[in-house]
Amino acid sequence: MNDEEVAVRIAEYGKEIGSLKHRTTDLEEQQKSIQELAMSVKELALNMKTMMEEQKKQGDRLQKLENEPAERWNSAKKTAFTTIISVISGALATGLIFMAAQYL
């Protein structure tokens, strides 16, 4: 190898090194973009988890609100049934007392 060939090879290596530096810079930018995307996905996942927990809480509150009218209706039915039974029992007791009073 003579000096001229060595100079040509060094020039070629210089071009290759420049190309590799350019490619490395591009890869570093891509890596930064991928890292930012990964962080965004992680943040999105945390937000989704928080939203899911809040939605569960809202579902529980909604279930309580939906059950309230049914509970009131059941309470009203019990009250009406108790009132009717009380009236009938009172009427029977009064009737029996009047009947017993007539025979005395």
Rank of each mutant, 00 (worst) to 15 (best):
K57W: 06
A80L: 12
T83M: 12
Q102D: 12
A7L: 11
K57I: 07
T25R: 09
V6I: 15
E54S: 05
I34E: 07
H22Y: 11
T94I: 08
M51G: 09
K42N: 10
I34W: 05
I34T: 08
A45S: 08
K21M: 00
I97Q: 06
A7K: 10
L37K: 12
L62P: 00
K32V: 06
E16Y: 06
L46H: 07
E71P: 00
L46E: 06
K21W: 00
L27C: 02
N2Y: 00
L46T: 02
I97T: 10
A45L: 07
I97K: 08
I34F: 09
K64G: 03
L62H: 04
L20Q: 02
K32T: 05
W73F: 14
M1H: 13
M1C: 14
G90R: 00
L104D: 08
V6E: 10
N74S: 10
E36K: 13
G18E: 12
G59W: 09
N47I: 05
Q31R: 10
K49H: 01
A7W: 02
E36A: 12
P69F: 03
K21H: 03
L65Y: 02
Q31C: 06
E16I: 10
V8H: 11
Y13V: 12
D3W: 04
L44Q: 13
Q58W: 07
M52K: 15
N67C: 02
L46C: 03
K77Q: 11
E16T: 08
N67V: 03
G59H: 12
I34H: 05
G59T: 13
L96V: 01
I88F: 02
K49E: 04
K78Y: 05
Q35V: 14
K21S: 01
S75G: 15
L44C: 12
K77I: 07
A76M: 07
K64D: 04
E54N: 08
S89Y: 03
R23L: 13
M48Q: 14
H22N: 13
K78L: 07
S86G: 05
V41K: 05
Y13S: 09
V8M: 13
Q58N: 11
A91W: 02
Q30C: 06
I84P: 00
D3F: 01
S19K: 13
K78A: 08
E68D: 02
A76T: 02
L20E: 01
V6C: 11
Y103T: 11
I88K: 01
Q102I: 05
M52V: 15
